[in-house]
Design a protein around this nucleic acid. Sequence first.
DNA 1: GGAGGGGATGGGAGCGCTCCCATCCATGCG
DNA 2: CGCATGGATGGGAGCGCTCCCATCCCCTCC
Lengths: 337, 337
Amino acid sequence: MYDVATRAGVSIATVSFTYRQPHRVRQATREAVLAAADALGYVPSASARGLARGRTGSIGLYSFDYQQESTPAGSAQTDVRHFPLYVDEVQRGVQLECRRHGYALMLGAGHSARHLPDVIDVAGRVDGLIAFAGSAPPEAIAQVAKRIPVVELGGATGPDAHTVLVDNHTGMRELTDHLVRDHGFRRLVFIGQQGLPEFRARYDAFAAGLAAAGLAAPDPVPSHPTDDASTIAAVRRHLAGALPDAFVCSTDQEALVAMDTLTAAGIGVPDRVAVTGFDGTVAGRIAEPRLTTVRQPMEAVGRAAVRILASRLEGSAPDAHHAPLAAPFVPGASCGC
Amino acid sequence: MYDVATRAGVSIATVSFTYRQPHRVRQATREAVLAAADALGYVPSASARGLARGRTGSIGLYSFDYQQESTPAGSAQTDVRHFPLYVDEVQRGVQLECRRHGYALMLGAGHSARHLPDVIDVAGRVDGLIAFAGSAPPEAIAQVAKRIPVVELGGATGPDAHTVLVDNHTGMRELTDHLVRDHGFRRLVFIGQQGLPEFRARYDAFAAGLAAAGLAAPDPVPSHPTDDASTIAAVRRHLAGALPDAFVCSTDQEALVAMDTLTAAGIGVPDRVAVTGFDGTVAGRIAEPRLTTVRQPMEAVGRAAVRILASRLEGSAPDAHHAPLAAPFVPGASCGC
DNA sequence: GGAGGGGATGGGAGCGCTCCCATCCATGCG
DNA sequence: CGCATGGATGGGAGCGCTCCCATCCCCTCC
């Protein structure tokens, strides 16, 4: 910048103004500065700018560090890793909305190796942060939230905790009703973790559906969407005795793994047992059989998250309490339809 | 940091050392500092660090600003926009490899609205940049390349221009041979732009294939992968007279649009005309009919780009001249197979 | 022709952190 | 018991930019 100023015959303040408040600089001066910058190949330092302004102009997205390696070959869903997961589809929405608002997007992920930029690190680089609940320690997220606006996807709303509301209940209830009413299933097993509000909502809807049919809801069988081994174990546990009528999974990812596990064990889906998911990922859509699921508006979730941050950052009134986004039940073939 | 230092009863230098050179600080001191940081909810400023160190620890990815809006409903491939395109799949590779190396990833995109962070802007925030050829003005990329290492995907290699080499020729040649030899096609039309080296290589391979069969290669029909309208126009131009035997497209995206256009015009693919693509995107894989194409190792391309930057940034010797990545011919159903 | 105004420009103090040196302290040795 | 030695700290000068003020210059108006 000093060089540019020298070359243009102005002070560094003027160079700065040329970029930040162009209207305050005379046309001729502005052109001279830009010409000099061009000739010198001036690339402004975002670090310096960020330091001086106190804002970086970028938003961070912190997500899971899913498997680096591909699924072992041989499984029916081998290709699954090449299709966008829930996280990826939300990310797309975040990306698009960031562009629209003119924010750069900083990506980080945790839960694994050493060198990884952790959530605090990412937080230090951005004006606002979007994080998937469970991707980072809650304390860390809370700490960050005290400094910059944070949207925790799948988390709870609180004083300085924002989230994008999705109606997890209705779709799962419909799905459950469908299994019970239309298919006449009685023995349903629920697979999935209960750690996060959104997952609890899904189980609750499931349980409510069973209750409405006069059935007792079994406890959820623990499994974690990012840990396939846990899902496999959860399914295997039910292969011994009488097979249930259906495995209702908390996420598509788990449902796909479940289908794989069953198929590998020689148990046909949906012939001998139904499997359902939740999310509506591409992988589930092209799986064979096509997954019965509840489709979250993933891109919309990502976009909404950015909008919340943007309104926070720009001081404009937040969207008030927006209505939860709808997540419709989407019957596929994996339930036997 | 000042507060942390005060609270821990040390100087700010010691706080800094605690993070950057932990081994130089006595254990007890280190713990005191970390405890204070924790209690205070200290979030280090990456801007300040970046400014002081001269490096940010992040890598930038600059790509196309594809359509914000979804494809108009009603077309057979309506869903295509929801599947990862070439760019997305490369991005996945970049993301994964960045994580592995401990870099944060900064995303930017251009070619549209006003507020968008442009390539220079992104460049100012990172230590190294990966850009898709054609996503930003060549001069801008050249300018950036003078300051930080840049990998231009699909671009040419030069003095301070890196790129990831992909063998565009072999696969396209095989594809062409397949159409001519196995299907006996004679009238082939090539659709695609010629602006970038990789696209030229594809056309050249196509032309070489025809030449080997004693056929004259028609000039490529201009079309741009990110501008569906141009592709539609290119196809329509050939609907009047005798239909060609096949439309050989420069990218999957164009091939999908071509299929759509043909279907909409009542011309069955592959019954009345064959269509082929290039890239091997998910969208092509699940299209109906499944697209005959050449599959680029997209994730590997992204990973390789990061590795090149990493070696540049860390001073280690670059990978020497790596062999071009292979891009195999993948027959589908859209050619009539 | 001079005063008054307003826009254009320059000065300069930080922004929060890193890292080179200088300083200091605790040991071990003569 | 004094001194050399080496590791542990503190001081402080920037890193490149923004933006508040002060200054200056040119115009307009009386």
